[in-house]
Nucleic acid binder design. Structure first.
Lengths: 133, 133
DNA sequence: CTCTAAGTTGATAATTATTCTCATTTTATA
DNA sequence: TATAAAATGAGAATAATTATCAACTTAGAG
């Protein structure tokens, strides 16, 4: 990764923000310092920084939502290979929420956990033909 | 909510699927039974079913990604009112992952937790002027 | 029953977030 | 300092989702 002034500014903005902003917000700050900067440059650099582990991209299960008829409290697992989404039961939930509430003093109404890794099918058969995306 | 044949079919498809599908996948099935059905109808009904708590929409923090310079293992809290995203530390993580692995036999590589509720600012000041979206 | 208001639909345009393309400029190094 | 690789800005393209609107359904009151 070569040096770039733009990337440095983007990283500075992220470092000075506690409430992990969206690309849109970062861009609004960015333009003050560098009105010519392109939105593509911002996205390119955010992705690049994330790939190099310098920042983290926070989102759920990529671009599109998934829909689940099971409305009981439970968690999800998405397979990195075949992209299928499985259920995981949630016995640990109440303890988790209590700890988070104590730590923050926020009122916690709900939470979602998404695990990812390799599902059983993809572990056993070297499930390349089902690779997605 | 009035009865609708389309909504019934959509719910049936969801109920017969263990690996919580995307709208796109549901639509592909849907068209076999009812080639005239509109994509808008699908999305309308998915949202409606979710609002009524009949199904669950699985995704992260709504439409746009957020970016975080803190790459240490930690969780997030998003305020339902002002939409700000805060960090929460993650002492419970190893136990959580171990339990999920035992339950599923999947290989778990990572996980994300997103809590939501009302942050401290929005609890104390009745923070209506900061309401977002 | 049957009339009517509210709910729902299909078709398609619009919107939002993000990625792609490509000619130009910048960076690192031989 | 020449040059290959990397990065940029501008704008077009894409993907997922929502909005619009006239026509059709549904449910309940009479």
């Amino acid at each position: 990764m070569n040096y770039s002034r733009q990337r440095e500014i983007i990283l500075d903005i992220l470092k000075s923000n506690v409430v992990h902003p969206t690309a849109e917000y970062i861009y609004s700050i960015l333009k003050k310092e560098n009105p010519k900067i392109s939105l593509a440059t911002l996205y390119r650099n955010l992705n690049q920084l994330a790939e190099h582990g310098i920042i983290k991209k926070i989102d759920g299960l990529e671009p599109s939502s998934h829909y689940d008829h099971n409305t009981h409290a439970h968690y999800h697992f998405i397979c990195d290979n075949c992209k299928k989404v499985y259920d995981i039961s949630s016995k640990i939930a109440p303890e988790l929420v209590k700890r988070a509430e104590t730590e923050t003093n926020f009122k916690i109404i709900g939470h979602d956990i998404v695990f990812h890794g390799i599902c059983k099918d993809c572990q056993t058969q070297n499930n390349i033909e089902n690779r997605k995306k």
